[in-house]
Each structure stands twice: as structure tokens, then as C-alpha cells.
């Protein structure tokens, strides 16, 4: 068992592509305006850092797991920000419509 799982670790390829994807997802989340206020973005950044340090130690499996989670954390952060923005836009539209209705009613 021990031998098996050790070789299992060693044969894990370096997840370079996954790290690139994760960095890309993080950059995209930031580009739409996600910041440290969004919990998932902070998680993504922390996990990416851990993944990078795992890469240095050749702990490839650990790096891949962390990077995969960080990618989805970042994507969720991005989706949350976009949804919030669309909600704000809806509220603003509703305000404008109410103002217009009120003015029309007063004429």
C-alpha cells in the first residue's frame, strides 16, 4: 500500500497547465472587479500561493488539488461579482422607472 501510494505521488505529472488556468481565472475575476471583499477570491489567492509552493517541493498532486479548487473559487468570485452588478443595474432601472411613473402621475 505504502509503496503504491508513493509511486502514485511520484508519477503525478506537474500540473503546469492547471496552474495557468487558475491564474487566468483569477485575473479574469479581478478584471470584472472582484477584490478581497469577495471571500472566494481571497480563498483562490491563498490556495494558488499554496499550490505554487507545493510545485517548488515537487508535491504535484497537492499542487493540482489546490490549483483546481482555486480555479473554481475564482470563477465563483467572478460570477458573484457579475451577478451583484446586474442586480445593481436592475435596482437603478427600477428607480428610474419609479421616478418616471411618479412624474407622469403628477402631470
Amino acid at each position: 500500500m505504502v509503496v503504491l501510494s508513493l509511486t502514485g505521488c511520484a508519477s503525478d505529472p506537474a500540473p503546469t497547465e492547471q496552474l495557468r488556468l487558475t491564474e487566468q481565472a483569477l485575473a479574469q475575476a479581478k478584471a470584472v472587479g472582484a477584490d478581497e471583499q469577495v471571500a472566494e477570491l481571497a480563498m483562490a489567492e491563498a490556495k494558488l500561493l499554496q499550490a505554487q509552493s507545493a510545485m517548488q517541493r515537487d508535491a504535484f498532486k497537492e499542487a493540482r488539488v489546490l490549483a483546481e479548487q482555486a480555479e473554481l473559487d475564482a470563477r465563483l468570485a467572478e460570477a458573484r461579482v457579475l451577478t451583484q452588478k446586474s442586480q445593481d443595474q436592475l435596482n437603478e432601472l427600477n428607480n428610474r422607472i419609479n421616478r418616471l411613473r411618479k412624474q407622469l402621475g403628477e402631470l
Binding site: Q69, L72, D73, R75, L76, A79, R80, L82, T83
Partner: peptide
């Protein structure tokens, strides 16, 4: 996470 992302989208 995928479920949450789907919900947000």
C-alpha cells in the same frame, strides 16, 4: 463549487 457557479450564472 460548480453548483454554486451554475446558480450564480
Amino acid at each position: 463549487r460548480y453548483s454554486e457557479i451554475a446558480g450564480q450564472n
